[in-house]
Simulated assay, not measured.
Amino acid sequence: MSCTRLLISFAVCAALTTFVSAQQPNSLRPARTAPTEAKPQGTPVEISPAKAIARQMADAYALSKTAKTVDEYSSIIENCERVLAEQTSEETIKYAKQLASWGYNRRGEAFAQQATELIEKGEERKANDLDALALEDFQQAITLDSTKWKAYHNRGVSLGLHGKVEEALADFDQALKLKPDHVNGWFNRAEIKSQLGRYAEAISDYSQVLKLKPDDHGSLVGRAAARRHVGKLDDALKDISHALQIQADYAPAYYERAEIEMGLGQWQSAAEDYRTAARTDNRMGRAFRGVAWLMATCPELKFRNSKLALEAAEKAIDLDGDDDYRTLDVYAAAQANMGQFEQAQATLQKAIQLAPQEAQAALQARLRLYANKQAYREPVRQAAAPANLPR
């Protein structure tokens, strides 16, 4: 999975990475202390170790009620760690661990949010550094309190961003075990399973989201994509229609409907939906990728346009980078359609190096075409619709 933000696609991203607001430790209160008698001005005040610990915990708890910044969460953590370094009661240690865990989790969320903002500015290296700090904080939160489901979920998101998808799935499993009604946990697990090609499991997880939140348009589109992959096109189109009823300007829904239409040979409808997706969200790289593929590979000449296909493929790379084999595959197809066969072969070789095993055969077949100075064309399909659904 790409290190860029997910999810998933990792539209991995947009979604595989949304955190819900954290709560303070359940049913926790600082230890109560008796008021101290006032001392004459200028006389040193002696505070017993027990009272000092109680004061530190009271300060940490008070700050937790308003904390919003990395520095404030760090202050809470430091107070709790000073307490944990002292010899004190089991009750106080337990509370300090829970509050420190809360602080680590919240600080990790703050780092992750800062990383997202940096990605949007194009500062990927700095964002990756913050993602690493976030992951460390989520790990420490779990070490201190193994019941913190939000930390498991957040660590799963971070692990997914680092390409450690099996570990991410294990964390989502644990988060959902502790919090079965956590919508984001079900959604993120579905996104990763879909990326791994485990479509039946993904459909089940998306369906669980929709039981909890029936109008979750991201899950409707995700389930539609998974249903398309297993051939359930009627159900996929129903999901898309529902998603567009909820939000008529939802670009991923138009993109997914175009993918279904491509598979059905409905070239005109696919072209319209790809363009609508790109127009609705001009930062959506895969929409431009779809436009490029259609205009470069359509078996019907009237839908092909060599110049525009190449421009759309280059736009997709500008938006999403060149670390996704699918984007490079599209770029190579556009180059070949333009007659740039040597460039197409070089581009496709890069795609082959990045592609999973299951994609290798198709890529190698296209590489042989380009070596023989032939462009790739989609198979001719008889246009058909699986259901008469309104557009």
Rank of each mutant, 00 (worst) to 15 (best):
G218R: 01
I93K: 11
I317W: 06
T17N: 01
R125W: 02
A50R: 14
E123Y: 10
N184E: 09
P44R: 03
S269E: 15
L84Y: 07
T66K: 14
R391L: 05
Y376G: 13
Y255M: 00
F10N: 00
L178R: 05
D249Q: 12
T143D: 08
V380A: 13
A62V: 03
Y152M: 04
K232V: 03
T327C: 04
T69E: 06
A85C: 08
A115P: 02
Q247P: 02
A225G: 03
L63Q: 10
L159F: 04
A258V: 06
K350Q: 15
V165E: 11
D239N: 07
A375M: 10
N26G: 07
R304M: 06
E314I: 03
L363T: 03
D239P: 11
R32V: 12
Y206W: 12
A334V: 10
R55K: 15
M262S: 06
R279S: 14
A270W: 02
H162E: 15
D234P: 00
S306Y: 08
Q335L: 15
D59W: 02
D215R: 15
K193D: 14
F288H: 11
A270Q: 09
A60K: 13
A52L: 09
Q349A: 15
R368C: 00
F111L: 03
V291W: 09
A270D: 02
Q360S: 12
Q56L: 14
F172G: 05
A375H: 01
W293A: 11
S158K: 12
T147C: 00
R289P: 00
S219C: 11
S241E: 13
A226M: 10
A202F: 07
P35T: 10
M57P: 14
A253S: 12
P214T: 08
E314W: 10
N79S: 11
E256T: 13
L367P: 07
V221W: 01
S158F: 05
S48A: 13
A112L: 11
A127I: 07
E166G: 01
F19P: 01
Y73H: 09
E378Y: 04
T116W: 04
K164G: 04
E120F: 02
Q41T: 10
M262A: 07
S89C: 08
